[in-house]
Computed example of a mutant assay.
Amino acid sequence: MKFEQQLDHAHQVLLEKGFLPSSISPIIYRLARRVGIKVPPPQFCAFAVNVLFGIAWFGTIWGVIMWFMQWRSLGVSVFYAFNASLFTGVVFGLLMASWYKFSAKRKGVPSWKEVMR
């Protein structure tokens, strides 16, 4: 089975389990797929993968917004801005990864290997 077929099947499984369409295909995962990264929906991803996606998109966007809205005018160092963005991304990534695992477990989502069959 090709990845696109597996992804369609996984989306169908998640919809049947009661997940909202917006939660089964967040924008960062869709963007990753567009650039060629074969990443399953977050409910099927490993915890660390979901943490890394949270760090990558939320930490980056939050840091850029904070830089242009406040930190630059306050004279905040780039080192501080980077660390604050990284910390914020880690916290967000941990929270989102925990939520994805908790909701998948609560709704009885099968493993990705089971969906691939």
Rank of each mutant, 00 (worst) to 15 (best):
L31G: 02
Q70K: 07
K17P: 00
E4L: 12
W112R: 04
A97T: 08
F19K: 02
A10D: 02
C45Y: 06
S25M: 07
M69K: 07
G108V: 02
W62Y: 15
A97L: 07
Q70H: 09
W112P: 04
M116D: 05
A10K: 01
W67I: 03
G89Q: 03
P110H: 10
H9S: 09
N50Q: 11
Y80R: 02
G108Q: 08
R117P: 02
Y80N: 08
L31V: 15
V35Y: 01
R30K: 12
F68V: 14
K101Y: 09
S103N: 13
L52C: 13
F3L: 06
V35T: 12
A48Y: 04
W99T: 11
A56T: 13
Q6P: 00
Y100T: 05
I65N: 07
C45I: 03
G93N: 06
S77A: 15
F58K: 01
S85F: 05
L94S: 06
F44E: 03
A84C: 03
N50R: 00
F19A: 09
M116I: 11
K2Q: 12
L74W: 12
Y80E: 11
V91D: 02
A10L: 07
Q5R: 08
K113G: 06
G63C: 14
L7E: 06
K105I: 05
A81G: 12
K2F: 08
K113Q: 14
G36D: 09
S25C: 09
S22Y: 11
S22C: 10
G36F: 06
V78H: 02
G54P: 00
M66A: 14
M1Y: 12
V109D: 07
V35D: 01
A46H: 12
G18L: 08
K38Q: 15
P26D: 11
A46V: 00
I27M: 11
L7K: 01
W112A: 05
K101N: 13
P26G: 09
G93Q: 04
K107W: 07
V13S: 04
Q6G: 06
R106N: 09
R72Y: 08
L86F: 14
H9G: 04
Y100S: 05
F68L: 13
L52G: 05
V51E: 02
F102I: 12
L15F: 01
A48V: 13
L7P: 02
M1V: 14
D8Y: 09
K113T: 11
L86S: 01
K17W: 04
W112F: 08
V78Y: 05
S103W: 04
Q5S: 12
H9F: 09
A104V: 03
G108I: 04
K107G: 06
A46T: 08
S85Y: 05
V90I: 15
A56V: 11
V35F: 12
V35A: 00
Q6A: 15
K101Q: 15
S103C: 01
S111L: 14
V35P: 01
W57T: 13
T88N: 08
P26V: 13
L15G: 00
S73Y: 10
K107A: 13
K2M: 09
L95H: 02
P26W: 07
G89K: 00
P110C: 09
G89H: 01
G18A: 09
F87D: 02
E4F: 06
Q43C: 06
F3M: 03
